[in-house]
Structures are given as C-alpha cells and as structure tokens.
Simulated assay, not measured.
Amino acid sequence: MALDDDMALLARQPLLSLMERDALRLLAFAAESRILRAGDVLFRAGEPSDGAFLVVSGAVALTAQDDGQPASEIAGPGAMIGELALFTSVPRQVTAIAREPTQIMRLPRSVMRRVLGESPDSADAIAQAIGDRLRGFVEELVSVRAALGAIDRK
C-alpha cells in the first residue's frame, strides 16, 4: 500500500484524525503491515499490549472467552483494535483471531509516543479528546449510580 493510502486509513479513526498531517505521515510510515491467514491468532486475552491494530482488509474475531463460543465481536475493514494500547500498557481484554485472510496494520505504542513527542499540537488534540471521552464516561457512571440508587430506595 502507498503511504498516502495508509494515511487515509489512519485518518478515518476518530482519535488519529485529530493529528496534524505530518504526524499522521510519520505514524503511517512507521506502521507495520502484516497478512494473517484464517485462524492466525493476533493476540490472546491477558497478554500485555504494546500498540493497536487497524484492520485493512478481512475480518478478525474478538472473544473474551477461549472456550469455543462464537465471537462477541467481528472487527472488519477500518476497525481499530486495542486503541487504548496506543497510549498505555494494558492487558489484552480479548483474543483476536483472523476469520479469513486479513491484512492488518500494527501501530506500536513506542512509535505513537515518538510521533506525539514531535507534534505537541497533535498530542494536545488527542489529550483533549481522551479527556472528553473520560468526562462522558464519568457522566454515564453517575447516571447509572443514580438509577441504581432509585431502585434500591424502592
């Protein structure tokens, strides 16, 4: 794939779309492309994370259980898997297995840190967006707490 095509794929991601063009170019240049065969395991639940994956083509089954149950989610073209791992180390919450021949783009956290370190405006925009997401999450938790409190009072 051409660098411009990779940049366009990355720019479709809500957080990454906030990055300046030069920063996005650096991220796209450093991204690692990989082809998976059907049944290949990308990662398993509980493994440490070191970055995110973007599905370029194909499909990846995501499941929290390794018990043969159907996948809880299917990530298709354009889906970002493990976005939080771009910014911090967290154990993988699911097992990711290619359902068919699949091309992925690996985005290492070390590269993201380097790119954001060289692009403070991009870093600020992403930090603001993550802060907005966290505030929204807290508001949802407050609503749930209030609803549960109302149930308990009945």
Rank of each mutant, 00 (worst) to 15 (best):
E32K: 15
P91G: 11
V115R: 00
L24C: 08
E100C: 12
A59N: 01
M19Y: 02
V60D: 01
Q69M: 12
G58C: 02
V115G: 06
V111Q: 05
L62W: 06
I104E: 01
S72G: 15
A28V: 07
S33W: 13
F29Q: 15
R25S: 09
I35C: 12
G39W: 13
Q65F: 15
A79C: 08
M19G: 00
F87S: 02
I74Y: 02
A61H: 10
R25V: 09
P70N: 09
P101L: 09
A79N: 12
Q69Y: 09
G76M: 03
T102I: 05
P101K: 05
A98F: 07
I97Q: 13
R34H: 14
P120S: 00
T63P: 05
A30E: 14
A28I: 10
Q93H: 14
D40A: 06
L27V: 05
I74R: 14
E20A: 15
R106V: 08
D22V: 11
L26S: 15
T95C: 00
A71M: 12
I97F: 04
P108F: 09
M105T: 01
A59Y: 10
L107K: 01
R92G: 10
T63C: 14
F53E: 07
L36C: 09
E118S: 08
A98M: 09
P120G: 07
L42E: 06
G68I: 03
A23W: 02
M19Q: 04
E73M: 15
Q93S: 15
G58W: 05
G82R: 00
I74S: 03
F53H: 13
L36N: 11
V94R: 14
S57N: 06
L84E: 11
L84A: 14
A38K: 10
A45L: 03
Q65G: 01
L36M: 14
A96H: 00
I74F: 05
A45H: 06
L54Y: 00
L84S: 13
I74C: 03
P120Y: 04
V90S: 09
V56D: 02
G76W: 08
G46M: 11
T88P: 00
Q69K: 15
R113T: 01
R109A: 13
V90F: 09
V60I: 14
P48I: 07
Q103F: 03
S119D: 08
F43A: 12
I74D: 04
A75N: 11
M80A: 05
A52P: 10
A71P: 12
T63E: 07
L62Y: 05
S72D: 14
I35E: 15
F43N: 03
S110E: 14
R37A: 15
D67G: 07
P48H: 13
L86D: 02
E73W: 14
I81N: 01
A31F: 05
